[in-house]
Design a protein around this nucleic acid. Structure first.
Lengths: 164, 164
DNA sequence: AAGTTAATGTTATACAATTACAATGCGCCG
DNA sequence: CGGCGCATTGTAATTGTATAACATTAACTT
């Protein structure tokens, strides 16, 4: 797993990232009877423009630039939908949103975010998840959600000395 | 480690929590040549009033109530100081701050936060930390900071069915 | 005492998120 | 077809969170 790292690895065919993500979203919505409406789809596409987490108002700005001019609740509702159905992850430490690389796969994600270039990479280490669940069990704590975010420097930025 | 859970365990002598935290802060500042100024100390005390993460504007309100009337940057600067020196942890998933239970002990914390009563409990599982560090190393990622937050229900709230 | 740096004060603003309510679209059933 | 019910979107206002930029004060150094 995680043999190659699409986000941190040198270059990758990002077009296929996008189409893969959109395809997965469509399949997931179809299979679960969910509606991937125009805004939801558009927000998902915008988020997938890159592997950098997007802020809600950044997305709002991009939608406005297209003439669409939605207001905050519209964007937040789309984001809520996408997050709720596992198509997008919220990056709490940045108040931003990034496309999920394992949509529809039932996983717990850990997200690495580079302080230099802002690229994010998602990992799904089951052993890590289990360790956290075990710790919770020992505390008699019932987990609803895990937030695991690791900030630092990606290989590129570490090498070139970029640090913010 | 973590034999007893001061936050989730039934009652505990919170007065000693506070004095322990303040004492640790004073010792740490003394030993590192840092200045635990009046606001910084006051903010730390306010944070330690409970084991529930406090929002910056909540602290601001409490300071105002005491006649102190600081403005946001003042509080954020105090918080930045406390976080930077490991006296307080930021709980990103809640935009709030909670006292660190292992100040000066060089650890990586995982924070459990109850959706029911908002109590937070800090754990420092070294094995978990090492696992994350190992994953990072495999990705050639240089960690600056880990954010590990687990939301759910504490033993009490799980039992009484409180869920928000 | 003057110079230097850290800390705080002040004003304004940027960014993030939600509340409350209105309007619209869409499926379904009679 | 027409109308009911529900999900979705639109709109306006507000609340909450955080920072920028610059002025002032306090403390430490020589």
């Amino acid at each position: 797993m995680n043999a190659v790292n699409p986000a941190f690895a040198g270059s990758h065919d990002h077009r296929s990232c996008i189409s893969h993500a959109l395809g997965a979203a469509e399949r997931l919505c179809a299979s679960q009877g969910l509606r991937l409406t125009a805004i939801r789809r558009r927000v998902l596409e915008l988020i997938w423009r890159s592997h950098r987490p997007s802020g809600a108002y950044e997305l709002l700005g991009q939608l406005s630039a297209e003439g669409h001019k939605p207001s905050p609740p519209t964007v937040y509702r789309a984001l809520d939908f996408l997050v709720a159905h596992g198509l997008v992850h919220k990056v709490s430490s940045r108040n931003a949103y990034v496309g999920c690389m394992h949509a529809g796969q039932d996983h717990v994600a850990q997200i690495f975010i580079c302080d230099g270039c802002s690229l994010a990479f998602e990992q799904a280490d089951g052993a890590l998840d289990r360790r956290i669940r075990r710790n919770a069990r020992d505390l008699h704590f019932h987990i609803r959600e895990q937030t695991v975010e690791i900030a630092g420097l990606c290989p590129d930025c570490a090498e070139t000395g970029r640090d913010d």
